[in-house]
Amino acid sequence: MSDLAIERDIDRSKMKVSDEIAIEINNMNKWYGSFHVLRDINLTVNQGERIVIAGPSGSGKSTLIRCINRLEEHQQGRIVVDGTELTSDLKNIDKIRSEVGMCFQHFNLFPHLTILENCTLAPIWVRKTPRKEAIETAMHFLEKVKIPEQADKYPGQLSGGQQQRVAIARSLCMKPRIMLFDEPTSALDPEMIKEVLDTMIELAEEGMTMLCVTHEMGFARQVANRVIFMDQGQIVEQNEPEEFFNNPQSERTKLFLSQILGH
């Protein structure tokens, strides 16, 4: 994909990585039937980190972040999110899911609800926030993603970029401590990619812990503090963006970078 230029300067004053551990993954393995999709994953994410996960399709990068909020179940190893270990205990799963926001490639907005209802649903039903307060929070985040005027429309009436920004606002309304992005710009027209990336950059500037599966290498270079490269279900290489792009170590990484940046 493109090395999309991000025009404005990025404010790094709040992008601080703390010592507090947000996510800890130890020796995690996952199989689809007999296919070994994730192999011995070890990853520690600190609060405030902005991690971009790259890799060829089928390398398990989406599966990895979907394991973090239990959309996929891992079979071996430990995943601890914000101090809570992911087990089959439903209470823990619902707790972690309400702390971890997620944005999908296809937005997954609820088409039968208005934009505002999409944003207030989970705060009202999961957090038991009073309706009035939930609406105020929703409008605050809709303003932040710059579409408060669309609040009473339905998702089907919005463009792809607008829908993805609503999806980000919907996650933010739950006041998550960690945000997961699963290829948030892959289904968008080039003209709309920028508006979504801008929203994500703003989020990073406020110090949000973010894990992004994306092919936007410009975003990785300028916003991430760590880039992880995956292939065949394994973490092949991880490094700071400058080092990762300028001085890749593994042959597989070099080949991948030459293919996506080469033209």
Binding site: N69, R97, S98, M102, F104, H106, N108, F110, L121, A122
Partner: peptide, 12 residues
């Protein structure tokens, strides 16, 4: 995706 969207928000 609708199931996943609902799950990811923590709805039971």
């Amino acid at each position: 995706g609708q199931y996943e969207g609902a799950d990811s928000l923590g709805l039971n």
